[in-house]
């Protein structure tokens, strides 16, 4: 199958690259005890709309141009950053994949996220949508130096380049009755997901379930199609064949039940563990089958995050 059909470079990179690789490490911050009037100069000078607030090297809040306007509207006089900042700060870790950052930009609608070093717990950088686009283009060695190209790409392409490509489908054909090639499809899918940086435990569960599904298709049918839909939250696999169908799904789901031939058993399969195995590996599984028409199996494995990234209250 053509490589373009499998996965594009951008798609791979969004899953593969980490926030720490594209973030800006030169972070402009303000001190907790500074005044809002200082902030105006800082934001104006640096042409930015928000900065992290620090207290002894610890991130304690974010303060933005909106906070400054609120301060003016309320008081008409100067007030402290301490009073005006928002303490409910959403952060990212330097080790988070870009796909997670993209999701967080979509979810919260913020312009920037402070980035925390996962090991030290300290502020390590700051990331904007522009940083992500630049990082991707850089990695692909696309010349973005021409200012016009750069601005256009960053303004228009964030949704196009990134959001679209965080959800996509890999498609493969499964050749029936060919026991030598059985497993090739699962192998290709596993390789593609591995390049995308899918965590090893998730990868292993998807691979085992896919392989069992592929073996069923090879053993019992003349072939079928496999589609794996990848989103930031889950990997959903669908295997469809136009084979003989399953007579009794409840029975087929019972460990040890099998209708396999001796030839299949000699390969080490047909022990009646395939469907129960898939169920064990998957977070969700659905099996539909019609005699004489075929079988459609869907299963999904959720991509869990190592930690919840919700509110990050440092105080």
């Amino acid at each position: 199958m053509a490589r373009t059909k499998e996965v594009t470079r951008v798609q791979e990179l969004i899953y593969e690259m980490k926030v720490g690789q594209v973030m800006s490490t030169e972070v402009i911050t303000v001190d907790l005890d500074s005044q809002m009037s200082n902030l105006r100069n800082l934001l104006g000078e640096k042409r930015i709309s928000g900065v992290p607030v620090m207290d002894n090297e610890q991130l304690v809040g974010m303060v933005s141009i909106e906070d400054f306007i609120t301060c003016l509207a309320d008081r008409n006089s100067d007030c402290s950053v301490r009073e005006q900042m928002s303490r409910d700060v959403k952060t990212l870790y330097d080790t988070d994949p870009l796909v997670h950052a993209v999701q967080e930009f979509e979810r919260h609608g913020y312009g920037r996220f402070p980035v925390i070093n996962r090991e030290t717990g300290k502020l390590a950088g700051i990331i904007t949508k522009g940083d992500i686009v630049r990082g991707l283009l850089n990695k692909m060695e696309i010349d973005y130096h021409e200012e016009e190209t750069q601005r256009r790409l960053i303004d228009r392409s964030f949704e196009e380049i990134i959001t679209e490509k965080t959800r996509f489908t890999l498609r493969y054909d499964i050749v029936g009755k060919d026991f030598n090639r059985a497993g090739e499809t699962s192998s290709k899918l596993k390789e593609a997901l591995k390049r995308m940086g899918i965590p090893p435990d998730i990868l292993r569960r998807v691979a085992i379930a896919t392989y069992e599904a592929e073996m069923n298709t090879v053993i019992y049918t003349s072939g079928g199609k496999l589609a794996a839909r990848i989103t930031p939250d889950e990997i959903a696999v669908e295997v469809q064949d136009s084979g003989p169908g399953i007579k009794d799904i409840d029975k087929a789901m019972k460990p040890g039940f099998s209708t396999a031939t001796d030839q299949v058993r000699e390969l080490g399969f047909g022990a009646g563990m395939g469907l129960p195995n898939i169920k064990k590996c998957a977070d969700q599984m659905q099996l539909e089958s019609t005699i004489g028409e075929g079988t459609r199996l869907k299963f999904s494995v959720h991509i869990k995050r190592s930690e919840d990234h919700g509110t990050n209250n440092h105080r």
Binding site: F179, A182, M215, N277
Partner: peptide, 26 residues
């Protein structure tokens, strides 16, 4: 039985088997 292997084996294991076909490697 490769299906049993897939169901029970842990990662980073050594598999001992009398089967020698491609499916063992897969």
């Amino acid at each position: 039985l490769m299906s049993d292997v897939l169901a029970f084996i842990k990662r980073d294991a050594l598999l001992l088997t009398g089967l020698t076909n491609t499916q063992v490697i897969r």
